[in-house]
Amino acid sequence: MLIPHPLLGLRDAQEFTVLGDASLLARPDPTRSDAEAAFCDYVFLRDNPKGVHRELWFHEQGDRSWLVVTRDTVTHEILSAELASDVKKRMEGTE
């Protein structure tokens, strides 16, 4: 599998390690009253979709950036990749 790295172009998936579902970027607010239950869901529960899946890949043997890769879990086709830092900024509205 080749991953279209937004800075480095097509890179072999072998250079990466996978963390899993990109929902891990949406860390719950630890100050909210139901934080314990929210963190339990955040740490342990997954949607585990059959089809399009957004997931975190780490370019360990490359530029050591975190990417959000959109991939099909049935065909293994990679649909897009972007820097996780950009995704995070967009989530927080700071871009």
Partner: peptide, 18 residues
């Protein structure tokens, strides 16, 4: 293998990845 898919039909999320 498909636990998440079947249990999602009952509205449940699981601590499982396939």
């Amino acid at each position: 293998g498909h636990s998440s898919q079947v249990m999602a039909k009952a509205g449940l999320r699981l601590p499982i990845e396939s």
